[in-house]
Structures are given as structure tokens and as C-alpha cells.
């Protein structure tokens, strides 16, 4: 096939277009690149702004310090646990609920839909939620990072739309004719056909759990239960010089040693998600676009 010839204005448009896209690309990639080079450069050169494009005075002291920090590894372990258990729990709740809501014969279907929808507009607020969590005796437990927020209304709707639009009624009828129960329809027909949305939900929930530090900040009081993002936050926010710190016997040299650490922790903390993304990406576009176009 011969390529269609482009007009001059088309070509100009494409060039400008590519240039703009390229700058956006640089804008997105540079911070990532900077974190990578900063993690292996001399911390004093990094903070004085001399590390710009390439690492300088390459060393692995930051990584070495990180290996010595017990709390980072405890945080890592906790985050993996919270993410694994939390995501499994989210999926167990969200997928069946979404499927049930997609079944047109469900009694009070609109009411249930509204019921979930309301939570998107009205939240409890910080203090009432805290009191609720406290009365449920979840404060400072493993489960506080897992149980609250089991179903996200947004994700639920996304799943429901997927089921409504992608699973033909005829398939279910066929299953029934073959003698399959409602459970058989769900487990043996619907779920295998819904890998795309399962993958997307998995990623959404997993990334949510992986990055979540706010509930830990509010509900977790025991440093042994801190997730990685909270450890990281404390490291970033508190490695600075405060009056308090500088008046203590703590040596400033100790602080200096902590400076290189944070970039290393950022890398180690985001690595699993970066690795996960490419594998799920092929489902991603398919899943997210569900319901965007009515056909």
C-alpha cells in the first residue's frame, strides 16, 4: 500500500505535535530519571544542585544505609501484606457485588445502586470515621489497613458496567439450559470472560493499598505496623533540621548520612508497582474504557 501523501500543513502539524509530545515526555520522565541518578550520587552534590543529567561521584552509600534501616524492611513487609490481603478482600467484595447489580432481575436493583452511589457524594468526615473505627476496635490493628473501604463505589460501577455490557444475556440462558446454577454462571462463565476488568481492579486496588499512608497515619500508632509509604514520609519530612533536633546531642553528621537515603527508598518503594504495570497494561485500556462509549 502506498502511503497517502501529506499536505505541507499536515506535516507542520505533525512536527509541532511531536515536539510538544516530546517535551511532555521529557517532563514526565525527567523526575524519574533524577531520582535514579540522585540515588547513586553523592548527597551533598545532589542538594547543592550539581547533579543534573548524569550521576556524579557514583556510590551506593544510600542503598547501604537503607539495608541497615530495620524500619524500612518492616514497612516493606507490612505493605506487601496489607496489599495482598487488602486487594484479595476488595476483589472478593467488589466483583460479586458488581455482578449482582448487573443482573437485571435483581429485586430493588435501583435502590442498591443508589445506596452505593450515595457514598460517592457523602462521606463520614475524618473525626466520625475515626470514632467509628475506634468503636469497632480496629485502631492500631492489622485489619484497619484492610477492612475499611472494602468496596469503592467508583470501582463497583466500573465493574457493573463491564458486566452489563460485555456479558450477553444469551450466554447465561445457555448455561441455564445446560443445567448450570446461578453460581455456575458467575464462576464458570462470567469470571473467565472478565479477565480484563479483574486485572484492572487488581491494579487499582493494589496500587491504592500500596500507596496508602493516610489511614496508617490516622489509625496506626505502633511503628511495627507502619506501611512503607508512612516510613518514607517520615524519612522525607523529618530528615530536615528542626530546632528540636539541632539542640539534641544528635550529631549533624548522622543527618547527612540520611540525605542520600530517601531517593533509594523511593526507588525501592515504587519498583514493585513499576514491574506490575507492564504485565497488566494490555488489559488496562480495555477495562477502563468500559462504559465510556454506549453502543
Amino acid at each position: 500500500m502506498k502511503r497517502r501523501k501529506r499536505s505541507a500543513s499536515d506535516r507542520v502539524f505533525m512536527i509541532v505535535n511531536h515536539m510538544i509530545a516530546f517535551f511532555f515526555l521529557i517532563g514526565c520522565l525527567y523526575p524519574l530519571w533524577f531520582v535514579v541518578i540522585a540515588s547513586v550520587s553523592d548527597p551533598s552534590l545532589v542538594t547543592s544542585g550539581q547533579v543534573f543529567l548524569w550521576p556524579k561521584k557514583i556510590n551506593l552509600i544510600g542503598y547501604q544505609t537503607m539495608l541497615e534501616q530495620k524500619e524500612i524492611w518492616i514497612g516493606y513487609k507490612n505493605t506487601i501484606l496489607y496489599t495482598a490481603v487488602g486487594t484479595a478482600y476488595n476483589l472478593c467484595l467488589t466483583i460479586p457485588a458488581a455482578y449482582a447489580l448487573s443482573v437485571r432481575t435483581l429485586p430493588f436493583r435501583r435502590f442498591f445502586n443508589m445506596f452505593f452511589l450515595v457514598t460517592m457524594f457523602i462521606g463520614g468526615g475524618m473525626i466520625p470515621t475515626y470514632l467509628l473505627i475506634k468503636n469497632l476496635r480496629l485502631i492500631n490493628t492489622f485489619w484497619v489497613m484492610v477492612i475499611p473501604g472494602g468496596v469503592g463505589a467508583w470501582n463497583l460501577i466500573l465493574c457493573r458496567n463491564f458486566f452489563t455490557e460485555n456479558i450477553p444475556l444469551e450466554l447465561k440462558d445457555a448455561t441455564r439450559i445446560d443445567g448450570g446454577s446461578e453460581f455456575a454462571i458467575f464462576f464458570r462463565v462470567v469470571l473467565p470472560l472478565s479477565k480484563a476488568i479483574l486485572a484492572v481492579m487488581l491494579l487499582f486496588f493494589a496500587v491504592g493499598h500500596w500507596n496508602s499512608f493516610r489511614s496508617a497515619l490516622l489509625y496506626i500508632r505502633d511503628t511495627d505496623r507502619y506501611p512503607l509509604p508512612l516510613v518514607l514520609r517520615n524519612l522525607l519530612m523529618k530528615s530536615t533540621v528542626t530546632d528540636d533536633l539541632s539542640s539534641s546531642g544528635i550529631s549533624m553528621n548522622r543527618l547527612l548520612g540520611m540525605q542520600g537515603l530517601k531517593y533509594c527508598v523511593i526507588i525501592v518503594a515504587s519498583l514493585p508497582v513499576l514491574v506490575l504495570y507492564p504485565f497488566i497494561q494490555k488489559y488496562f485500556v480495555k477495562g477502563v474504557m468500559v462504559g465510556s462509549v454506549k453502543g
Partner: peptide, 17 residues
């Protein structure tokens, strides 16, 4: 002039280098 916007981190690394 950087000093006008310097952070505690800049301070630690610069003065202790």
C-alpha cells in the same frame, strides 16, 4: 542567592561537606 530559598537539607549537606 540560593540561600534565600535554602532548605534544612541544603544547609546540612553544604555546611558539612
Amino acid at each position: 542567592y540560593d540561600c534565600l530559598t535554602a532548605s534544612g537539607e541544603n544547609y546540612t549537606t553544604m555546611t558539612l561537606s
